[in-house]
């Protein structure tokens, strides 16, 4: 039996769906970049990663289910690409000594200033460079979760799906990761003081 002639109406609606998908995805690119910038090691890597993500997303747009979270869908592609790019080779960090308690950074910052009265200003002692470099030195597994939840505003649930890990793991990595970040920040402040 001969193939049915292409149904012009169906093709047109297909094209509309695709254009709609592409526009919606492009509209999220600022938010995708914001997260990618810190999942990747550098601006250049983030740039590549975002392009690869969009190239793949545009090719496989049909596998996106309309009505679900497109931003999470894009980030799922992005984190998978990031892992494929050789993240596996990463060493497991020695956890001993990496974590301090939750108040470690505050104590360091406020003691170096002889007691600060305004907690909202204490953070301003940290420069943008301090924070960006401290964040980049947090081991990947922990950083991914911090970046998705604390910077990208994803829910635990979304982060669990994006990273394909249980939600309990998201929570424990988030809590430990924040402590590691604060430890790194405290160290950067100590170095500057020397």
């Amino acid at each position: 039996m001969a193939e049915a002639p292409p149904d012009a109406a169906r093709l047109a609606s297909d094209a509309r769906d695709r254009v709609h998908f592409e526009e919606e995805a492009l509209g999220l690119s600022d938010q995708v970049y914001r997260v990618a910038r810190h999942l990747a090691g550098s601006r250049e890597e983030a740039d590549d990663l975002v392009q690869e993500t969009y190239a793949r997303a545009f090719r496989s747009w049909r596998s996106y289910q309309p009505g679900t979270n497109l931003r999470a869908w894009l980030l799922r592609i992005l984190t998978n690409l990031n892992i494929d790019r050789g993240r596996k080779a990463q060493r497991t960090p020695p956890m001993q000594g990496l974590e301090a308690n939750d108040y470690f950074l505050y104590d360091r910052l406020s003691e170096s200033d002889g007691g600060i009265s305004d907690e909202d200003r204490v953070v301003e002692r940290l420069s943008q460079d301090d924070i960006v470099s401290a964040l980049s030195s947090v081991p990947h597994d922990f950083r991914d979760v911090i970046v998705l939840v604390d910077i990208g505003d994803f829910s635990y649930q979304d982060a669990a799906q994006i990273l394909d890990i249980p939600i309990g793991t998201v929570m424990s990595r988030l809590h430990r990761g924040r402590r590691i970040l604060k430890r790194e920040l405290a160290e950067s402040v100590l170095e500057e003081g020397e």
Binding site: H38, L126, D150, I151
Partner: peptide, 9 residues
Amino acid sequence: YVRQVVTEP
């Protein structure tokens, strides 16, 4: 603060 300062256009 962290959220603010790490956000790059």
